[in-house]
């Protein structure tokens, strides 16, 4: 009897105060449909508490992930704030100066130079790596004896810390006792004195060379995995259709591999924009300012001149650049994936 009565009051109550409807949206429509379906079938209305639970659930589920990001968001926000101040470790106090640091950054030559160094580095390092990586992946994507041996060896350069690899390269490139210069001198005695990173002219070539040596296998491995995951029937169909190998490569393999190339490029471009260890271990940004990229510039500002605010401004600009590039590339990647999935 008592239960019946409570039932009655509840449903009357629900009729009078119509439940707060969630804003229209595809997911909500679905949830609403479920709720009303349940209401109709069980003959009673859904309580407000239940509705609140339904709405709060997504946020509760995502809460752990949010807690994790605190460790990232707090320093990020702090850094952005510092870039808007005149924070310098040599002064006891600092104050908010708005976008002053950025105005100075964009009007001075150092920033544009650093941007140019980073850009050139990305262009040449990643471009060469993509080309070489693609060729290596295609060569290793066959079941020959040599390919089977080389596939596991490919990963070796990735197992060395880039700093150590750079230091080893530095020794090998020494004009006094470097093994590379020795071999070069066999072709032409003058090359014994080839200055490598010692000359502003060849510094960029040198660090790009080391970057290519370390990271080409990364792209080759990704593209090899991509090649192996491609569906076979289209390639068989193209063979039967009489397409030559070059035609198949150009019209089928390349476009179908494009999503994997984009993924490899996203990783490598981001890595190269925030490249620090190779040029720093090589010359600390020199000779002169020839290898002063965004990262080394920021490091020098913050840790040599103790100018935390300007260093932070450099880092924030770098973040914006990486954010925009990765956003564009991920968008492009998603579009291709969708197109390719039949």
């Amino acid at each position: 009897m008592f239960h019946q009565k409570r039932f009655l009051t509840q449903s009357v109550f629900m009729k009078e105060a119509s439940p707060v409807r969630p804003k229209a949206g595809r997911d909500n429509v679905y949830v609403e449909a479920l709720i009303s379906f349940e209401a109709r079938n069980t003959g009673r209305s859904v309580s407000r508490w239940r509705q609140f639970q339904d709405k709060a659930k997504p946020y509760l589920i995502i809460l752990p992930a949010f807690l994790l990001t605190i460790g990232i968001l707090v320093p990020f926000a702090t850094g952005v704030y510092w870039s808007l101040t005149d924070y310098n470790l040599m002064r006891p106090q600092f104050e908010f100066i708005g976008i002053g640091n950025y105005v100075e950054l964009f009007s001075g030559g150092e920033f544009w130079h650093a941007l140019k160094v980073s850009g050139v580095y990305v262009l040449f390092a990643v471009g060469t790596e993509l080309l070489l990586g693609l060729i290596i992946a295609l060569l290793l994507n066959q079941e020959t004896f040599l390919a089977k041996i080389f596939r596991p060896l490919l990963i070796l350069p990735l197992l060395i810390a880039p700093v150590i690899a750079t230091l080893i390269w530095k020794l090998m490139m020494s004009t006094d006792f470097g093994v590379i210069n020795y071999f070069l001198s066999l072709f032409n005695p003058e090359l014994k004195e080839f200055p490598w990173a010692g000359s502003p002219k060849y510094a960029m070539l040198t660090v790009v060379l080391i970057d290519v040596w370390i990271f080409t296998p990364f792209i080759a491995l990704l593209l090899l995995a991509g090649l192996r995951s491609l569906p076979q029937p289209p390639f068989e169909a193209a063979q039967v259709d009489g397409a030559s190998r070059w035609f198949i490569f150009r019209v089928l393999t390349l476009p179908m591999l494009a999503p994997f190339m984009v993924i490899a490029l996203i990783f490598r471009i981001i890595d190269s924009i925030r490249m620090f260890d190779i040029p720093f271990a090589m010359t600390k940004g020199g000779p002169g300012d020839s290898l002063m990229n965004l990262q080394i510039q920021a490091y020098t500002e913050a840790f040599t001149y103790l100018n935390i605010s300007v260093g932070s401004a450099y880092m924030f600009v770098t973040w914006v650049i990486i954010f925009i590039i990765s956003k564009l590339m991920v968008g492009y990647w998603m579009k291709w994936r969708q197109r390719l999935s039949a």
């Binding site: 569906p231 029937p233 289209p234 063979q239 039967v240 259709d241 030559s244 019209v251 476009p255």
Partner: peptide
């Protein structure tokens, strides 16, 4: 002879369409 040289046409069970074209 390679498939290219045999000059026969084939329709595949999975259709084998070129999805990006």
């Amino acid at each position: 002879l390679s498939p290219q040289e045999r000059n026969v046409a084939m329709s595949f069970e999975s259709y084998a369409l070129y999805t990006h074209l």
